[in-house]
Design a protein around this nucleic acid. Sequence first.
DNA 1: TGGAATGTTCGGCT
DNA 2: AAGCCGAACATTCC
Length: 269
Amino acid sequence: MPELPEVESIVRRLRPVLVGRTIETLDLVRRDIVTGDVGVEALPKRAIVQVRRHGKSILVALDPPLWLVIRLGMTGQCLVAPRGAPRPAHTHAVLTLSGEPWELQYRDPRRFGGWRLARSLNELTVAPDALALRRATWRAIISARRGQLRALLMNQKILAGLGNIYTNEALFAARLHPRREASRLSEAQREALYRAIKTTLRRGIRWGGSTIRDYRMPDGAAGRFQERFRVYGRAGRPCKRRCGARIEKLPAAKDAQPAFFCPRCQPSG
DNA sequence: TGGAATGTTCGGCT
DNA sequence: AAGCCGAACATTCC
């Protein structure tokens, strides 16, 4: 579920709650959600100096130096609740902060997400973050890769942050068909896609991300960007550019995740 | 009622 | 070797 705008929305709300506090206790209900260089007993007594994001990952900088990297997978949630509050089902870990009346609850029903304790971020940040993407970096990426545009945008090793929702929305904004060959875009189309990625992500953040189902901000609030989707999940409904066409949904069978696009605004040629 | 679908990522195969 | 496919998991929806 959570793509870049959802994770950014979470990070912005987590930051004022966590930064400057010290981890007091960790209650790890499921040990297997944590991996990394260091055991979880390393967490208590460390101070939280920074909360950042790269792509879809939450990066918590600790002192003495250590990174807690949280990836939410499809259904991960970081909730801030009063200390000792009831834990929702599938809560795998709970952090308390010294002297504070709240706790951080981590839950993830499908368990595609997890925590990683790392001494450095090295490999994690090799792919550029889609929101921080520089034009020169983008040009290097788009001119060096082949394959379908949609697959390229969703590949986290190439560009970090876009998932199915924002890929579909950005391709619509750039008026490019999801199946277009990435290496065959005109100069104008590359520029249009670069801008579309940025503006689409920023719109997603402005609306607090998209709540289709599980995604919540730390206080439990839902995002509202789903009200603004132009193609995602809108198969059969009219294009919002009022071009008269109906939004189409690509395969369903072959692709694990369906693509949505407007056949008139996003010609395959 | 069971089968399909869901926002992700990894490993394995070609 | 980069690119595609299925699997990992749990819940909801038809």
